[in-house]
Design a binder for these strands. Structure first.
Lengths: 338, 338
DNA sequence: CTGAAAGCGCTAACAT
DNA sequence: ATGTTAGCGCTTTCAG
């Protein structure tokens, strides 16, 4: 590995000047010829600045951590892409981590946050996250943005417009003539679950549609939770003609359980789910979904983190653009003329 | 942030001794009392060693990168967990990265590999990975283990026993009385695809079963590829009574397309897929799968990376334990008495 | 058994 | 317009 000394020696320019040329210091005035010599030498030697030395000197790591409950969640890739693009624009690197790891391995916080391996953290905490997850970061004075969680509090937050997405789903069903609509939601107290349920109730009442308390389940977002939700729904006297499912994973379970009970989708009941990911297209029938601006969420989270000034009150934002968008497939249809 | 100086001052022990006590230097003999004073001071001051300084001094980052084509692939979480556990046992941190990012952002290689932010890389290259992805890492002298890719060559590799997993699937179908078996595989030339196809052909012939060339498709692993595979299969004169699908994502598409063509699973055709992940249980019917030792793969990859000595020939290993295991669900059944 | 000191590679303040 | 130098925080010889 060649160092800045080598570049200095080869180009005959001092280390200080080399450093400033190479890091694009704008306040620097060097002759074009000197700059060229430095650049040529650096290229010649395949010079790459040593990260540890730079980090030690500047006390910044130029790295941000993106921590999510489940990297495997299909929505995550888009989020990560948005964050990486935005970070790249600022010459920052994103490292991905699993919240489970953060929770399970008490040394993670110490190693990554305590030792200063990152300059900031974007965290989507699991619904049941222990407070110390957030506290541990804040206490260490590490900049932090919480995504898709509560939308207030002492820590900066950024959320999707869950209510708007649900409204898109409800409007779609309304346009298809449905008036009896049920809701498969997340566990009460869950970060996004409340916003989605509220959004559902508001949309239904504003559009003059009909629902019943027992048509709303709040069991959870997993595939199994979806199955259980259907089991619960079928215990009610009459089923709605359509279901808004607040999460696509749950929607898979919903679909499976409806099949098991020989209810046909969309003939007997229409389904529309939140989040548009690849397997929405690989279910049977293919699932009508609402696409949410996840990439923008990732990008905005990075921007918020960078904009954070110590001492200023925590910012709370909502990603409004692009608005949630319906992706019509085959799981929704006109309400049958009964 | 308190530094080692502060600990030294507070404890009245020299910096050198403090460093050795704190990093658990085994060759060190200190009085129990001195050690206690140091530990107490460190605790008192919430001392955490600065990562950049340590990395600069030791020229090791204590960090490994785990790079995969698709973090969203459900198999990935388990792989990551295995790697993280093994890494943690050696006081190493794993950072996750997306291969797409590596390919798209030419600065990633420079930043992460070139600047020495990591000590080694575990890479699952996408099937269509450009050679420079691997070359860029090797050229920089960075230790590298390739997982689930080719199983030879100048770079160390670690693969799952794909053939054994396929054999488990075929044996299961055999036990259910199937003798006409088809195969939905990945694109030819794909890293794992060849091993799986070979495994299939070998298992079928060893068990005295029957297949036909046109019952083997090699379109790909995506949900859409699965749909296309079924479309291709149904163009053949007669369908097999069972299908081994080399990837669960493709299996979702297979299931959807069979539904669309009103073929019943498992009544008309049985399906068994590779990789057991959550949504195997959320399909209709729930999918019989073969579980593979992904966690062990992750752990073993870390071990291989650590065992790597420069100058020694590249190691090529296969993860044999625990062996692939059948997870029976409802997508397979006895062959119908025709 | 413990202390002193060099130096990892870089940047930024200060000299020239 | 370029060169010099101190020092970021740590580990690790080497002397004591």
């Amino acid at each position: 590995m060649s160092t800045i000394r080598d570049v200095s020696a080869l180009s005959g320019v001092s280390r200080g000047a080399v450093s400033r040329v190479l890091s694009g210091d704008s306040t620097l005035r060097v002759s074009a010829e000197t700059r060229e010599r430095v650049l040529a030498a650096a290229r010649e030697l395949d010079y790459v600045p040593n990260h540890a030395a730079r980090a030690l000197r500047t006390s910044r790591s130029s790295t941000l951590a993106l921590v999510v409950p489940d990297v495997t969640s299909a929505v995550f890739a888009e989020l990560a892409r948005g964050a990486e693009e935005q970070a790249g624009a600022h010459d920052l690197t994103i490292v991905l981590a699993r919240a489970e790891q953060l929770a399970a391995d008490s040394t993670w916080m110490q190693r990554v946050v305590g030792e200063g391996r990152v300059d900031g953290v974007i965290l989507q905490a699991p619904d049941n996250a222990p407070d110390r997850m957030v506290d541990g970061i804040v206490e260490r004075g590490m900049p932090l943005v919480l995504i898709n969680s509560a939308d207030d509090g002492p820590v900066a937050t950024l959320v999707l417009d869950d209510a708007a997405a649900i409204r898109v789903a409800v409007e779609h069903l309304h346009a298809l003539g449905h008036s009896d609509i049920g809701f498969v939601g997340g566990v009460p107290g869950g970060a996004t679950a409340g916003r989605r349920l509220n959004g559902f109730q508001r949309a239904v009442s504003q559009l003059g549609l009909h629902t019943r308390p027992e048509w709303s389940t709040t069991i959870g977002y997993s595939g199994d939770d979806g199955r259980r939700a259907v089991a619960a729904l079928t215990r009610t006297s009459a089923l709605p003609t359509a279901l808004v499912v607040a999460n696509l994973n749950a929607a898979l379970g919903v679909l499976a359980e409806l099949h098991a009970r020989e209810l046909r989708v969309p003939d007997d009941i229409s389904i529309v789910a939140l989040h548009d990911v690849w397997y929405a297209d690989a279910t049977w029938p293919p699932m009508t979904t609402v696409r949410m601006p996840l990439r923008e969420l990732g990008a905005a989270a990075v921007s918020m983190l960078l904009a954070q000034k110590p001492g200023e009150p925590a910012d709370h934002r909502v990603v409004h653009f692009p608005p949630p968008q319906l992706v019509p497939r085959a799981s929704t249809a006109r309400v049958p003329a009964s």
